[in-house]
Amino acid sequence: MVTARDDVNAFAAMESLRVALDQAHIVLPSLGVDAGSPALGLVELGRVRADVAMRLAEALRHGGDE
């Protein structure tokens, strides 16, 4: 189980996610850090088209191996 960690930088987490998604040929155009709640360290995933959501689900099922 993953728990929240105070020492994880939201910008670093966002960039790490962006790189991993890029390696799976997936782009989340609205990916960013939620500037409205900096103390919470939230990463905004945003909206995606249905086909992108399906590719993301497949990548997660297969551990990113394609």
Results as ranks from 00 to 15, higher is better:
Ala39Arg: 10
Val19Asn: 05
Gly41Phe: 01
Val8Asn: 01
Gly32His: 03
Leu21Cys: 07
Gln23Leu: 14
Arg55Trp: 01
Ala20Trp: 10
Gly36Glu: 13
Asp6Tyr: 13
Gly32Glu: 07
Leu42Trp: 06
Met14Glu: 13
Val8Asp: 06
His25Arg: 15
Ala20Arg: 10
Ala50Phe: 03
Met1Tyr: 10
Val8Thr: 08
Leu28Tyr: 00
Pro38Leu: 04
Asp51Tyr: 07
Leu28Thr: 03
Val8Met: 10
Ala59Ser: 15
Leu45Gln: 02
Ala50Tyr: 07
Asn9Gly: 11
Asp65Ala: 14
Ala12Asn: 11
Ala20Ile: 00
Ala20Cys: 05
Thr3Met: 14
Asp65Trp: 08
Arg55Leu: 14
Phe11Pro: 01
Arg49Gln: 14
His25Phe: 10
Ser16Lys: 06
Gly64Ser: 04
Glu58Tyr: 11
Pro38Trp: 04
Arg18Asp: 07
Gly41Tyr: 00
Phe11Cys: 02
Asp6Val: 14
Val43Asn: 00
Gly32Pro: 03
Asp22Val: 03
Leu56Asp: 02
Asp6Pro: 06
Val43Lys: 00
Gly46Lys: 04
Thr3Arg: 13
Ala57Val: 07
Thr3Ser: 11
Leu21His: 01
Val27Gln: 12
Glu58Met: 13
Val33Thr: 09
Ala35Pro: 03
Gly63Gln: 03
Leu17Trp: 05
Glu66Pro: 12
Gly63Thr: 07
Leu28Ala: 04
Arg5Ser: 11
Pro38Asp: 01
Gln23Arg: 15
Ala39His: 13
Ser30Val: 04
Gly64Tyr: 04
Pro29Asp: 07
Arg61Gln: 13
Asp65Arg: 15
Arg61Tyr: 08
Glu15Tyr: 07
Ile26Glu: 07
Ala39Glu: 12
